[in-house]
Design a protein around this nucleic acid. Structure first.
Lengths: 233, 233
DNA sequence: CTCATAATTCAACACATGTTGAAAGAGGCG
DNA sequence: CGCCTCTTTCAACATGTGTTGAATTATGAG
């Protein structure tokens, strides 16, 4: 009975043309698709090679081993994403927002949007994260935490500022709250919709938008200093 | 390099005495320990058999296959936990709490406690969940969703009541909010502390308590109807 | 004791896995 | 053409996997 599943899962025809000269990034694309389909642990070197239409040995020519491939994908994505997140955080800080939102509320919302934008069309990376963040152990945990730490610090700084400016309640713990937001960021893109598909009667994309909006409202209501927002209205 | 890891991981001596007559529940205990150690997907029949000090074939004598073992563990745990959760929810509903909490706030907090109590000393089940809930796909998803649905419904009913009684804001979506709480329940026991260990300078157990309290406060502040709580003070 | 039945182990199958060393191919330069 | 270096593939290794059918042992009834 595992035979059927295996043949169904692994014998999928690779898509896209094979280039004459294989670049490492081409291999990373293929690996990311397979990681997404089979999970990071479940994916095999042979499956990645099949997806890339090349020999398994070629992967060892370009990368040290399977873990190195995973880390390379991680580096590539966060290398694109982190500068954007940091610049958004810097730009929004201290600026007055047009809508009824406070500056910090606007900054957090923008960070959510940027994060989302980067991951929206990258189902491979998302699914990879979903399986990997959550496990939170083993296989290249250190590299993972390196990037997560940067995001936590980014948010933590914002929360510290929010407490000083009076936008946030004084009794929240910035680092814990940053951690809540980070987890929600990761969940948001994939896990919430996937789960909600089991409990709510609407298309996944609609569910995602609704859940994201609802969650942010709940989160903000939980951390906001109510006296600040009312006196600013 | 995988050889070392494999021998380190798999050659662990099984603990506890082997009983004369092997009961299915004894096998489930062993399987749960291995699932916890190696992950549900990573665990092999042979590793489970080694932990139980028996032959792999014996597992096929008592269970149909690996998935059946996993489902049996699931059934056993939720069979103990669900009645408790349901009775707590029923008992708290409509009752007046002594502390400053509203009845619903107290009920939600109690549910969190009961859930926690059931999972606190069952590291195997927790780690199993951690790896499995999050993947949210594949391997016996249906059985899993069956139980999660019951928990979501339970909470959803409470939130519906809270809106009617005026304890909660009218503009929250009960099913989505129930889903947030459910995810937090699952995260709470294991994931939050595991993550926080990377970002906070305190022992994991302290971090767990702190995070749990902080999260519930944030969550409640997000959903509570402020006019209700203030007029009850 | 005998014998049937339930519980447990043995041995093996076919296949998948990570990895490696040698071989083959391709492209440029003399 | 030959030679060299870089890229790619072939074939194989040792081991691990889920699973099964036959063989063995224990257990209890007559």
């Amino acid at each position: 009975m595992l035979k059927e599943a295996a043949s169904d899962t692994h014998k999928k025809r690779p898509r896209g043309p094979k280039p004459d000269r294989i670049e490492p990034s081409y291999l990373l694309d293929a690996a990311q698709r397979v990681f997404a389909r089979d999970g990071v642990d479940g994916a095999s070197i042979r499956a990645i090679a099949r997806e890339a239409r090349c020999d398994p040995s070629l992967l060892y020519y370009h990368f040290e081993n399977k873990e190195a491939i995973f880390v390379a994908i991680l580096d590539r994505k966060y290398g694109q994403m982190m500068p954007d997140l940091e610049s958004v955080a810097a730009a929004c800080a201290g600026q007055q927002s047009s809508s009824g939102r406070t500056p910090l509320q606007e900054a957090l919302w923008q960070i959510l949007r940027v994060y989302h934008k980067h991951l929206k069309d990258d189902a491979g990376f998302r699914t990879m994260m979903r399986g990997k963040v959550q496990a939170c152990q083993g296989f290249s945990e250190r590299e993972f935490m390196k990037y997560l730490s940067r995001m936590v610090q980014l948010m933590c700084t914002l929360f510290d500022g929010g407490i000083k400016s009076g936008e946030l309640r004084k009794d929240i713990d910035p680092s814990i709250t940053a951690f809540f937001l980070l987890r929600a960021c990761i969940d948001m893109v994939d896990i919430f919709p996937a789960f909600s598909a089991n409990f709510m009667l609407m298309p996944p994309e609609d569910a995602r938008l609704l859940v994201e909006k609802q969650w942010f409202e709940l989160f903000w209501a939980g951390i906001a200093n109510t006296s600040y927002t009312t006196e600013n209205k």
